[in-house]
């Protein structure tokens, strides 16, 4: 599905633009989660095949010709893994944001310039 592919790339670009241009640390994490969603949509739309059903082989699907009737299961598996890991990474990033706020009392990235060259 070409439209889903374009949508995925658009979300990826919006998220990267947000991560680069925003100053607020929580806004940067929001941009990261938008990039996450965009990449997941790209991977799922690569595995889509026209006029086929979901990879669940119950009585609707003819078991002898199952491989000709279902969409690709491997992108689904990859995205399932990536979503769970994405939750863990987002939670860890937000924990760091809270810790940074405790140290400096500021959410703006301009106040954290030790590593800037």
């Amino acid at each position: 599905m070409i439209f889903a592919l374009i949508l995925g790339f658009a979300l990826l670009l919006i998220g990267i633009y947000g991560m680069l241009s925003q100053k607020n640390l929580i806004k940067i994490v929001i941009g990261f989660s938008i990039v996450d969603t965009g990449v997941h949509i790209i991977i799922v739309s690569i595995g889509y095949l026209r006029n086929r059903t979901a990879p669940i082989l119950n009585s609707v699907v003819d078991l002898g010709k199952a491989a000709q009737q279902v969409v690709d299961p491997i992108p689904s598996v990859l995205v399932l893994t990536a979503i769970v890991i994405g939750l863990a990474v987002t939670a860890l990033m937000l924990t760091f944001v809270v810790e940074l706020y405790k140290k400096r009392n500021s959410l703006s990235i301009d106040d954290y310039q030790e590593l800037k060259w």
Partner: peptide
């Protein structure tokens, strides 16, 4: 995006997993 070609059939690995 412009050069992307969608699959017509499952590749060998996916076929093996489904069967």
């Amino acid at each position: 995006v412009t050069n992307f070609e969608f699959l017509e059939n499952l590749n060998d690995l996916s076929t093996n997993y489904v069967s």
